[in-house]
């Protein structure tokens, strides 16, 4: 592992895979096919894009002009704020993989994660300049802000669908069906997690109260 960090090829490969993300977002069908089938993507690049997304999300919170984003700082928890991307992402990857693997999906969990992260690229790509531009416009000129902001999300959303279609080798209708299915699987997982946590906490509370009772009696 450490030895590979010293090799020059590691870095050239990393740069090539990262650059390939730009090809992916402009030529999604072709790009996401090559991403896995031609091994032109890497997890390192995917992680980089994910980190960029998280950074741009925080930068947006901090540096967007108050004209477009009024932040109630008392109510912000930075970790929860980051979790609002990471948690759905984890659920999506697991849910999508678990579902598609039962129905002839060719993608592995690793590939689902990589492709989804690659599809996030439009978000930092548009949001970071938008954050800067928001500081040099007035409210009346700001109509484009919400349009571009929505466009970045729409673009990323379409890319995720295209990515899933290519890595699982599905038809378009099947992809859309399984996207909805994956969202449903996410809901089911959230439900089970909540159930699990409330059961565990009740179980713990039960043993704590027994312990207290014993201590009182002694």
């Amino acid at each position: 592992m450490l030895a590979s960090l010293k090799k020059k090829e590691t870095y050239t490969h990393y740069w090539a895979t990262l650059k390939f993300a730009f090809y992916c977002i402009t030529h999604p069908l072709d790009g996401f096919w090559d991403l896995t089938h031609e091994k032109r993507g890497s997890i390192a690049a995917a992680n980089t894009i994910l980190i960029l997304t998280l950074v741009s999300r925080i930068a947006k919170l901090q540096f967007t002009s108050f004209l477009f984003m009024k932040v109630y700082w008392e109510g912000i928890n930075i970790f929860l704020y980051l979790a609002s991307i990471l948690f759905p992402l984890a659920l999506w990857c697991v849910g999508n993989w678990a579902l598609t693997t039962l129905f002839d999906g060719k993608g592995t969990l690793r590939q689902v994660y990589m492709a989804t992260c690659y599809a996030f690229l439009p978000y930092p790509l548009l949001q970071i300049p938008l954050t800067i531009v928001s500081n040099v416009v007035t409210v009346e000129e700001g109509a484009f802000y919400s349009v571009v902001s929505a466009f970045s999300l729409l673009w990323a959303g379409l890319l995720i669908i295209a990515a899933m279609m290519q890595i699982h080798e599905y038809s378009i209708s099947k992809t859309i069906g399984f996207t909805v299915g994956s969202l449903f699987a996410m809901l089911v997982m959230v439900f089970i997690l909540l159930l699990f946590f409330s059961m565990i906490s009740q179980g713990i509370a039960y043993f704590i109260s027994i312990g207290r009772e014993i201590m009182f009696r002694m």
Partner: peptide, 18 residues
């Protein structure tokens, strides 16, 4: 204006400042 989130007045001032 920024301290108290008054966007209309802020925009008015900012337009002139810009």
């Amino acid at each position: 204006f920024e301290l108290k989130y008054d966007d209309d007045n802020y925009s008015r001032a900012f337009k002139q400042y810009r």
